[in-house]
Design a protein around this nucleic acid. Sequence first.
DNA 1: CGTAAATCCGGCCGATCCACCGGATTTCGG
DNA 2: CCGAAATCCGGTGGATCGGCCGGATTTACG
Lengths: 249, 249
Amino acid sequence: MRRRDKNDTDLELFELLVKLDKLAETTRIPALLCKLLEIYGLKSVAYLGCGLTAQPGQGPYLAVTYSDDWVDHYKAQRFVDVDPAVQIGMRRMLPIDWDTFDRRDKNVRRLFGEATEFGLGRRGISIPVHGQHGDRALVSITRDASDRDWRHLRLHYMRDFQVLALHLHQAILRLEGQRIVSISLSPRERECLLWAAEGKTAWETAVILGLSEHTVRCYLESARHKLGAANNTHAVNKAGKANLLSQLP
Amino acid sequence: MRRRDKNDTDLELFELLVKLDKLAETTRIPALLCKLLEIYGLKSVAYLGCGLTAQPGQGPYLAVTYSDDWVDHYKAQRFVDVDPAVQIGMRRMLPIDWDTFDRRDKNVRRLFGEATEFGLGRRGISIPVHGQHGDRALVSITRDASDRDWRHLRLHYMRDFQVLALHLHQAILRLEGQRIVSISLSPRERECLLWAAEGKTAWETAVILGLSEHTVRCYLESARHKLGAANNTHAVNKAGKANLLSQLP
DNA sequence: CGTAAATCCGGCCGATCCACCGGATTTCGG
DNA sequence: CCGAAATCCGGTGGATCGGCCGGATTTACG
C-alpha cells in the first residue's frame, strides 16, 4: 500500500517540520501541503484557521490542496454549517475519523457525495489545533482506502498529522497572526482581574484579598490601562487571550 | 541504542493511546507513565495540568514517575518559579528542548543540578498541551543521551509525545475535569456578548448591530442568565472558556 | 395548532463601574 | 542614592450596568 519505507516517511516528516518552522511566507504553504499528498499518499489536505488575529470580524484562514471550484461551491452552499468535520472537529480536542460521523442527515450525505465528485477521498480525518490565544485550526486529510488498510493508516495519520497540524498552525500564526504585545501585569493586578473574571465586584474582591475596595479599583484601573482595555470586561477578555490569567505566576 | 524495533514502538504507542482513551480511573496513570519509560528508554515522565476544573483556586494536577522526594523538594524550593520548563514551556505552543534553556541563572543551574541527583535525565523535552477551555498541561520527559543520539531521539520524542500528551491530558480532563454544562446561546446573545467582550457598551453594541440599546441589554441579560453569570464580565469569561464565542456558526 | 424560543421595543432605579483628584511606604535595580 | 514600579489608602460624580416591570411578532417543532 505504502510505496515508501517507514524510515523514509519519518525523515520526510521531520524535514517538513523544520521547513515549516523556518517558513518565511505563506505563499509556500500550498506547495508544502502538496508535498504531504505525495509523502502520505493522500487525496487532499486542508487547513482552516480561526481567530488568528484576535479581531472579531476577521474571516477564517484557508489553505487547501484541492480545487478552488470545491472551495467556491462549499462556500456557496454554506456547507460549513453542515460539515461535521468543522462542526464537530472544531469542538473537540482529539482528532476525529470521518467514518464516525452520523450521515443520516440529508445535507451531510449531499456534502460528502459532492466532495468525492470534486476529488476528495472517501476516508478522512480532521485534527483540531488549539492555540494559546483562543486561536484554533482544523487540519483535514482525505484518501481512499479499504477498511483493512484504513485501520492501520488512520493511526499513523493521527500521530504524524497531529505534529504537522501544530507546526503548520504555528507557522501560519507566526506569519499571519497579529502580534501579541507582551504586557506584564503585576501580581496584584492579575489577581484583581482574575476575580473580576469570576464575576466578583470590586468590593467582593477587596474582601477576598483583604484590601480596601478603592485599592482594588486602582489595580483594575491600571490593568485596564496596561491592556488598553475600555472596561473590565474587555480587560479580562484581553488578558485571558494573552494568557495572563493562568494560575501559575 | 534502542532495544526495540520501530514497528514495535509504534504498536506500543498506539496500544497505549487506546488504553488512555478508555481509562476509567486516574489511579492507573502512574503505571501507564512507567510503561512509557520502558517503551522509550526514558528516565522520567511528568504531567502537569492547570485549569482543569475552571475554579480559580484549584491547584495544578500532577502525575509523575519520579520519587515523591523530588516533588516535595521541588515544591519546598519553589522551583516552579524558576523552572524554565514550566515558565517557558507553559507559554509556548510547540515542544521545547531543555538544551535551549538559558542556564546562566544561578537558580536554574541549581535546579537542574539537583534534578539529576534525584534521578532525572540530563536531556529533556517539555510538550505543552492546550485544551479547549483554557486548560493547559505540560508533559516533560527526560533521559540521558549523547549529543549524537539526542538529535535523532528528540525528533521522535517530539512527535510521539505530542500525541501521547494530548491523549493523556484528554484522559485526565475526562476523569478529573469539571463537567462543562453545554449551554446554547442564541445568535443574538452570542453577538452581544462578543461585542461586550470587545469592550463595547450596550449603546455601542446597539449601534453596531442596528438594535435598540434596551434590546441589547435584554440579550446580555438572558445570556448572563443562561450562563449563570453574575455580570457581563463573568459571562464573557464563562462563554469564552466554554468556546461559545468562536467565529463559526 | 398551540407552545416554546427567538427576535425586538419601552422605561425605572439602585448598584456598580470608571475616570479623575489626592496621598502614602516599600522594594529593587541602575 | 535616586527613580521607577509595586504596594496600599480616600473621595467624587457622571456613565453604565443589572434587574425588573411591561409589551410585540415571527419562526419552528411536535
